[in-house]
Amino acid sequence: MGKVIATRFARLVATLLAVTFLTFSMTALLPGDPVNAILGVDAVRDPEVVAKIRADLGLDDPFLVRYVNWLGDAATGDLGRSYITEQEVITTISQRLPVTAQLAFMAIIMALILAIPIGVLGAYKQGKWQDSTTSAGVQVALSIPNFIIGIFLIWLFSVRLGWLPASNWNRISTDGLVENLKTAILPASALAMTQMAIFSRLVRSDMIATLQENYILAARSKGLSDRFILLRHALRPSSLSLMTIIGINFGALLGGTVIIETLFAIPGVGFRLINAINQRDIIVIQGITVFIATAYVVINTIVDLLYAVVDPRIRKR
């Protein structure tokens, strides 16, 4: 177990170094003087400010020195400061992270709640009408981009029925949980749909394989009920592959939050990223990109380790 953790940790560090380096290289790719890009298009070019930015970013140092300095700052939580909004990037992220995290978490939970029964049903009734209809539904759900789902959820639940707000965000701390959920449920559902399709397809195919195992036959011959076999004997092994796929799909989910937060005007990390791109606020784009990529890599490592904790066969290796 210790060895597994050590190798995974070494790989994590290597990947993080490479990922941060790639993101940092973005500024080097910028055409012309980076100061122009950082100041934005409309800014007045005050020589004093230009000199300050050059000094702040150490633009006169060689590229590698700048990278090492920047990495050192980033490791201590200093991702720089936006020259447009004058706010520290790390403050922006820490203010907005809870919103994005809540959306992602809700989406995964909702997806699992829907996906497991659908997948189990499909496997149990394999080849029958229940299976073919759910499979077709899953295929369609897989093909609808999440922003289209979001728009039609808005149309149904806020334009036609008027039950839920079409945009905005209520915080748990100031408006209470119920008001918060009212604003969170639509965007989370839009995010959950694709995940649900992926999860349920996995559960179905996984379970079809498991149901052919000998121990299922043994359980059946003992006279255990179908429900007990399905939930206790067959579903458990699938939880491992579910965990992996949640980790792998987390990247797509984070990308999804960017779009959905923009659609619903939710003050999360993703919406800020789009704002920054529209303002060409390079420091913020860089900071958020590095943050999201790091989060994704770390989460995948944790999933891998959890996998080893849950599955004794891997632990022993």
Binding site: G251, V258, I274, I277, T289, A293
Partner: peptide, 12 residues
Amino acid sequence: AFPALVLLLAMV
């Protein structure tokens, strides 16, 4: 290792 859409946004 990057979330695809985020990397694309950063590049664009």
